[in-house]
C-alpha cells in the first residue's frame, strides 16, 4: 500500500518555483532518505506532506487524503525539525505529558527512558536548550509519537557524533519493533544510508532519482587511467563527473549499467566503487566547474 502519492506536484513561493512537476509514491512501512543540495526543495516537500503548506498545483495524497488542513493526516503524522515550537510555559516533562494526549500511539516508557539516557533536566525549558539538545529532545518526541508517518527534516542539526549514532540506532530499533513509514532528509547520506530502504534524490524541485539504496550504490563506477584512454573510452557513455589528477591521469565516474568493466581493467584502467553520497553530489552538481575555478 502507498502511504504517499504525488502527481505533478508544484509549489511556487512568490515568483520562485520551489517544486516543479514532482511525481512519486512511497510505500507503507519503509524508511526513505530524502536527499538533495541546499534549496533543492526538500523542506518544501516535507511541509506539504505534513499538511503545513498548501501545494500550488498537482495532486498530493497522504493516507489517501489531501494533507493540507486535514485532521486525520495531522493526527497520524509528525514533522520533526530543529524549529519545532512548544509552549514556552511548559517544562520538558510537561511537554512529554501533553504530547501523550495528542498522539494515540505515544510510547511514554520509551520517551522517559530516552529522556533519562540523554540526561535531560525535567524542569528545563525547551527554548533554553542548546542547539544539539533541542534536536535531541525533538527526536525523542518524534520516536515516542510512533506516528504512522514520521518525517524527520534534518533531525541531527547540532547533535554531536555520539548522539547522532545513538539516534540512528534508536530510530532503527524502534522501527523494527513498531514498523511505520519514515522519511528522513539529510545532508549526510553516508551516515544514514545503512538505515534506508529507498532514496529520493531531488534536484531543483524535481525528482532526480528514486530507487532502492542498494541500487544507488551500484549505480556508477569510477575509472582512473591515462587521460587519452579514459576520454576515448567514456565518449559514448553516460558520464557524471570527470577530474584530472596530476599530469596525464583522469578520474571519471560513469553509469555502471552495461559497462564492460573487465574490458576497462584489461586496458589498464583502475575501477573503483563510488559512494552513494558522491553519486548524489555528481548527479546534482550545478556549480560551474569546481570551487577552484572561483579562485582563478
Amino acid at each position: 500500500m502507498n502511504v504517499i502519492t504525488c502527481e505533478g506536484l508544484k509549489k511556487n513561493q512568490r515568483k520562485v518555483r520551489a517544486l516543479s512537476d514532482l511525481s512519486f509514491t512511497i510505500k507503507e512501512n519503509t524508511i526513505t532518505g530524502l536527499i538533495g543540495r541546499n534549496g533543492a526543495g526538500k523542506t518544501t516537500l516535507l511541509k506539504i506532506l505534513a499538511g503545513f503548506w498548501r501545494e500550488s498545483s498537482g495532486e498530493v495524497k497522504v493516507f489517501n487524503q489531501h494533507p493540507f488542513n486535514n485532521l486525520y493526516v495531522s493526527a497520524n503524522t509528525i514533522y520533526v525539525d530543529d524549529q519545532m515550537s512548544f509552549p514556552a510555559s511548559l517544562t520538558l516533562t510537561e511537554i512529554l505529558q501533553e504530547a501523550e494526549v495528542f498522539y494515540e500511539n505515544w510510547n511514554g516508557k520509551l520517551a522517559k527512558r530516552l529522556f533519562d539516557y540523554f540526561s535531560f533536566h525535567p524542569e528545563q525549558q525547551h527554548e533554553n536548550l542548546s542547539k544539539g539538545k533541542k534536536s535531541t529532545f525533538n527526536m525523542i518526541v518524534g520516536l515516542a509519537s510512533r506516528c504512522a508517518l514520521t518525517i524527520y527534516d534534518e533531525p541531527t542539526t547540532g547533535m554531536d557524533a555520539a548522539v547522532r549514532k545513538d539516534f540512528y540506532r534508536a530510530l532503527l530499533r524502534d522501527y523494527l519493533e513498531y514498523p511505520r513509514t519514515i522519511i528522513i532528509s539529510s545532508h549526510h547520506l553516508d551516515e544514514v544510508e545503512d538505515l534506508l530502504e529507498d532514496v529520493l534524490l531531488l534536484q531543483d524541485g524535481s525528482k532526480c532519482l528514486h530507487l532502492p539504496i542498494d541500487e544507488l550504490k551500484d549505480y556508477a563506477v569510477g575509472l582512473t587511467g591515462r587521460t587519452e584512454m579514459v576520454r576515448q573510452w567514456i565518449a559514448n557513455k553516460e558520464v557524471f563527473h570527470t577530474n584530472n589528477i596530476g599530469a596525464g591521469t583522469t578520474y571519471a565516474v560513469v553509469k555502471k549499467e552495461g559497462i564492460p568493466l573487465d574490458n576497462a581493467r584489461q586496458l589498464g584502467m583502475e575501477t573503483t566503487s563510488v559512494t552513494s553520497s558522491d553519486i548524489c553530489v555528481y548527479l546534482t552538481d550545478q556549480t560551474k566547474g569546481g570551487i577552484d575555478d572561483v579562485f582563478k
Binding site: I31, L172, D194
Partner: peptide, 11 residues
C-alpha cells in the same frame, strides 16, 4: 540481522 548491524531489514 538488521538489529545486529544497524541496517535496514530490507537490505
Amino acid at each position: 540481522l538488521a538489529e545486529m548491524f544497524t541496517i535496514n531489514p530490507a537490505t
